[in-house]
């Protein structure tokens, strides 16, 4: 946090000094509330019970702990990735009660009693889920970091299409959903792959969708 009165600001906007190229700092930031208020109770841990990949877990967590950090740091299930921690990349995608979400934008305490499925729960190196195997076959990845999220999404996307959930590219909202290439591409768009494996991922998904 920066704290300085160097920069002149007006209600209209920012007056950036006299020199066009001058760097400007920022006005002081006063804390609305002293962080020591609230006392010990705030630091108290919260009991969280959830089931992860079929195994019941009982944890005592800081209330601030996200579902993603619960998995990665407390349960040491590091298959779910932290790419941005702000819901902007999809690398943390997991299934909660069968529905995919970004685990980085969810607090563990919101998930009491929930059933979580992570990439580790879909399959193991020795016993791959068909979607995992299709990713290997079609080289649907490169660095591999977004891959668990892509695969969790891919599995969920096919399920969403089967369940008739429409998408942005669905032309007939009241008709039957079909796993077309554009449907899959649109529905997968919350999973960014900077290596650019999209075309291969689409092929892997098409193979699994065909069954």
């Amino acid at each position: 946090m920066a704290e300085d009165g160097f920069m002149k600001v007006s209600r209209r906007g920012v007056l950036a000094g006299g020199v066009a190229s001058a760097a400007v700092g920022q006005a002081s930031i006063l804390r609305a509330q002293d962080s020591s208020t609230g006392g010990a109770a705030k630091q108290a841990k919260v009991p969280v019970r959830l089931t992860v990949n079929g195994t019941p877990q009982e944890l005592e967590l800081d209330s601030r702990t996200t579902l993603l950090d619960t998995l990665r740091e407390h349960l040491k299930l590091t298959g779910s990735k932290k790419g941005c921690d702000h819901g902007q990349c999809g690398a943390c995608t997991v299934m909660v009660n069968g529905t995919r979400i970004n685990s980085c934008l969810s607090l563990a305490v919101q998930h009491q009693g929930d059933e979580i499925t992570t990439i580790e729960g879909l399959g193991s190196p020795e016993d791959l889920h068909p979607m995992q195997a299709a990713f290997v076959e079609h080289d649907g990845y490169q660095c591999g970091y977004c891959t668990p999220g892509q695969i969790c999404s891919a599995v969920a996307v096919l399920e969403e299409i089967r369940n008739g959930i429409p998408s942005h590219v669905t032309e007939d909202l009241t008709g039957r959903m079909r796993a077309t290439e554009m449907e899959m591409r649109e529905r997968m768009s919350g999973n960014i792959c900077r290596c650019g494996a999209y075309s291969n991922i689409a092929e892997a998904m098409a193979q699994v969708a065909k069954g």
């Binding site: 298959g79 399959g123 791959l128 990845y141 668990p148």
Partner: peptide
């Protein structure tokens, strides 16, 4: 040749 590290990557077992 499919990647030899592929099964680790797709199963979330490759440690970053």
């Amino acid at each position: 040749t499919p990647r030899i590290d592929g099964p680790l990557k797709v199963s979330g077992r490759a440690p970053y």
